[in-house]
């Protein structure tokens, strides 16, 4: 027994020493970023929308910078797990995080002690505004008619689109507050994402969904569903007939967005390399085709612009969340 254990212990020590030697040899060299695999942390599941965008960018970064970029999905807790993992990673540029809208709400929702200040920002590439979508046989021809109906029949009309406190729920709350309606006069039916919400709407189990227009594109094109408005500053080029809230006199826009960040303290030179590569990718036709095919809206903000935007988002949503008291 003791002899066998001894042999294994010797082997174990040998392995440890070997790994130590390799490590010692590799460390002191002057590094040219990037010289080894870069990990992209994605706070959402493999195969979802965010994951698809991240994997596209991983491939493109790999081409641009000639280094492997791999996607690591860290799911859970409405994005809390992945965002936290990304923020606390080593600030050397070898872990970048695909941050999404939820970063702006995690703290206010009490899910994680994490805010915009825990990241430094590279670039944002996507923004999808919330829509107001109803069945095509619904009685409301315009957003005004819908809002009027809510005022006259408080508590009757049901909305859905995502979990409680998710992006489409908060967009609904923002819209109603801006229109002078108590959000409590509508009922939010929690769902586990866009697909079940659309099912619910088609099946007549809810009245309105506030998902993004691309999420419901099949049904909108087929004429099963109708969009009354979109919560963005400008109309969506794919749906030029859908008016924005601002055109309808409600000063509100809201939706989800995605972009890349690095932990606080990442060297500027490293950030510069990534931002420049990112800009080249964002300018490419391939990127535009990809986003169009997948139905994602393109919105580019670089470095400081992006950082300011995220900070602004933080306070916008904090106000809304406090207002309704989640």
């Amino acid at each position: 027994m003791s002899k066998r254990v001894l042999i294994v212990v010797v082997v174990a020590i040998l392995l440890l020493v070997m790994s130590g030697i390799v490590w010692a040899r590799g460390a002191p060299e002057e590094e040219v970023y990037p010289d080894r695999t870069v990990t992209i942390v994605v706070p959402w599941a493999a195969g979802g929308g965010t994951d698809r965008v991240a994997r596209f960018w991983a491939d493109e970064f790999q081409r641009e910078l000639d280094t492997p970029f791999v996607v690591e999905n860290r799911t859970g807790g409405s994005g809390a797990v992945g965002h936290s993992a990304g923020a606390t990673a080593a600030a050397d540029g070898y872990t970048i995080t695909m941050v999404t809208f939820e970063l702006a709400t995690l703290e206010s929702m009490g899910l994680a002690d994490l805010t915009y200040a825990d990241f430094e920002y590279l670039l944002q590439m996507n923004e999808d505004a919330a829509g107001v979508i109803v069945r095509s046989d619904a009685p409301w021809e315009s957003l005004d008619e819908l809002l009027e109906d809510i005022r006259n029949n408080p508590g009757q009309i049901t909305f859905s689109g995502t979990a409680v406190g998710g992006v489409w729920d908060l967009a609904r709350v923002g819209m109603l507050l801006e229109a002078g309606i108590d959000p409590d006069d509508t009922t939010w039916i929690p769902s586990e994402g866009a697909a079940p919400a659309i099912t619910d709407l088609l099946g007549g189990h809810v009245d309105v969904i506030t998902n993004s227009l691309p999420e419901a594109q099949s049904q909108l094109e087929a004429g099963d569903l109708r969009a009354l408005a979109v919560m963005s500053d400008e109309r969506n080029p794919t749906f030029p007939d859908v008016p924005t809230l601002k055109e309808l006199g409600i000063d509100w826009s809201g939706g989800t967005w995605r972009g890349f960040s690095v932990p606080v303290g990442t060297p500027d030179a490293v950030k510069q390399v990534l931002i420049e590569a990112g800009q080249r990718i964002a300018d490419s036709q391939r990127f535009r085709d990809f986003m169009d095919d997948a139905g994602f809206g393109i919105r580019l903000r670089l470095g400081e612009d992006y950082a300011e935007f995220v900070e602004e988002e933080h306070y916008t949503w904090q106000t809304i969340i406090r207002e309704v008291g989640f």
Partner: peptide, 14 residues
């Protein structure tokens, strides 16, 4: 399956 197996504190795959 591209699972990022732990590479150790020394950052090597060995």
């Amino acid at each position: 399956f591209r699972v990022p197996l732990p590479r150790g504190a020394f950052g090597i795959a060995l």
